[in-house]
């Protein structure tokens, strides 16, 4: 294990910010901060009633790291994945998160925190499959 206290504390702090964002959206607007649900609803043929709110939420999500890069420093984003795998991964993430009605934010954060059986099972499933995928691709194929 590669435990680093600084990373753990920044992780906890960032997690609290994500929780506060989801809490704000729930208590002020009555909306669930599920990124795949919000994004998917915006590319549907029939736009949801509160589509401007959804668009503004995503605008904030996209703008925050760019503002951080301007004011503090650009965040490191290290990707060594080849383009075909990037495309395959993207399609699977988009298709699967919509089919399963949620991703890490919707099921993982918003659903698990209300002890939803669906969300807990979905989170356990995507965590397990992702761990298996990484284990195979990194340690068996790459080795």
């Amino acid at each position: 294990m590669n435990f680093d206290l600084t990373n753990a504390l920044f992780g906890l702090a960032g997690g609290i910010l994500i929780g506060l964002s989801a809490a704000l959206l729930l208590l002020a607007n009555g909306r669930i901060a599920g990124i795949s649900g919000i994004t998917g609803s915006l590319i549907a043929l029939r736009l949801p009633a509160a589509w401007t709110e959804s668009l503004l939420f995503l605008a904030g999500l996209v703008a925050a790291p760019a503002l951080y890069a301007l004011i503090v420093s650009p965040p490191a984003i290290n990707i060594t994945t080849s383009v075909p795998v990037l495309i395959a991964g993207g399609v699977l993430v988009g298709f699967g998160s919509r089919l399963g009605s949620g991703c890490t934010s919707g099921h993982g954060v918003c659903g698990m925190s209300r002890l939803s059986k669906r969300s807990i099972l979905a989170t356990l499933t995507f965590m397990a499959v992702a761990i298996i995928a990484v284990t195979i691709s990194r340690n068996l194929i790459a080795a």
Partner: peptide, 15 residues
């Protein structure tokens, strides 16, 4: 639910 989560997890793990 489970199939969607599994497909999502595969893509998440790939990238």
């Amino acid at each position: 639910l489970i199939g969607g989560a599994a497909i999502f997890g595969l893509g998440w793990g790939l990238v």
